[in-house]
Design a protein around this nucleic acid. Sequence first.
RNA 1: GGCGCAUUGGUGUAAUUGGUUAACACGCCGCCCUCUCAAGGCGGAAAGUACGGGUUCGAUCCCCGUAUGCGCUACCA
Length: 478
Amino acid sequence: MSNEVRVRFAPSPTGYLHLGSLRTALFNYLFARHHGGKFILRIEDTDQSRKVEGAVENLVNILNEMGLNYDEGPGAGGKFGPYFQSERLEIYKKYCDELLAGGHAYYAFETAEELDEMRKVQQMQGRQTMYDRRARNLSENEVKEKLTSGNPYVIRLKVPLDEEIRFTDIIRGNVKIETNLIDDQVLLKSDGYPTYHLANVIDDHLMGITHIIRGEEWLTSVPKHILLYRAFGWEVPQMAHVPLILNPDKTKLSKRQGDVSTEDFLKKGYLKEALLNFMALLGWNPGDGEEREIFTKDELIKLFSIERVNSAGAVFNIEKLNWMNGEYIKNYDIDELTGLILPYLNAGGIDTSDIAKTKRVVYAVRNYISRLDEAAEHAKIYYSKLSLNEEQKDIITSETSKKVFALLYSKIGQLTEITAENFKPLLNEVQKETGVKGKNLFMPVRLALTGEEHGPELGLIAYVFGKQEVLKKLEEVL
RNA sequence: GGCGCAUUGGUGUAAUUGGUUAACACGCCGCCCUCUCAAGGCGGAAAGUACGGGUUCGAUCCCCGUAUGCGCUACCA
């Protein structure tokens, strides 16, 4: 199947998954699944100075946790490995030699200091800072001499002059850039590692990548890549550069203005389904007059098309994420939701050993929260000892309150079990028989049960406590 | 500075490949429900599509310019 879609997510392992990367991964994933193709994870670890311990493991874990499972890559195997660029050094060297032989690249021997100096001078003269291509004109003998005497070197791309590179981006349409403005980019660093530009082109080709879906920050380096494809005589994959995710002030989403890692959001109690759903809609929509906003992963896969990705950056609107997360919480399977909320309740000091009660608590609390980490605060009323202020004490010790409690107590005693439905009629009966109604009826009961003036409807509260506990609470105030 | 990309209410987006009272959602405001707080239901304010020119009988939609924002401009990705 030679025209199978193959896409890749190719992050550098920084130690956490940035939300922007999450969305790039998601778009790649949706695109692959939509077309029945392959989704590949490749680790771009060519910068030795930015190595982070455990970063790859973390990345793999979070992708799996988010349900963005890949078909090829670390831990998943595949016929196009290794999937770590740091393990493909000989490959890059080999192709680099090919470029050298074909006159598409050349050796350069400047030190970092020399290059800094060059840039400084250019800056002072108010000129554009870029490599002045000085090593292009080294003679064969000069090169040979420096090489044999062990001078450190890099290999640079020999950018053809006075040309215009044009390409078509699926999201942005036609783009053109003059080659004179393109740096003779370093392809192979002096430590023997490739730069992004070289590695990415070689790997994408060798791994049979058909579509490159990546962040907008790469758009301007596409011409360099095209030059490389051309030098190798390879076909250029289709490209789609997705817009950036922005802070509320429209700058690139950054740590400075709040959490940006997927892990942080999960920790705060955002459901992965909600996060995925929300991220998908940031810069993309199904179009066609579709007005739904809540989509399962399968629906997203079905609807997704890369052409419908927007070209402008999108502000990360956390208010809307909160709403969407709340929607998911309200509609989640109660057993699964209980499992998810458990750690947050425990962290809030709540004893969850009575799992049946915990489940009822979750059922009652879900309407009040938009994040899982808010659950404990709302659940407290179902576990705390009664503590009332003077005014509240006056309410529950009033004569009418006592009457209400006594009658309610006997009526509950006749029930086999309290449900959210059968408690309300009980109160109606109490109202009729005692003549106490409205706030005078409900508030004492509410206070007696929870010690709070606010909370869910009484039927729900009584259901959460269950018959025995409600009776016990009433005994305390009688 | 140079180059590239972008621009529909506060935010995310829509608008049968030019003809709509410019639609939906979040947020905000109000009302209803109600013992309370949420949820829910109903309604409202909020953009004349960055600005200026074209093309056209007619532009959110096509073209040009300006402004603004962002990105890139490393032996980082």
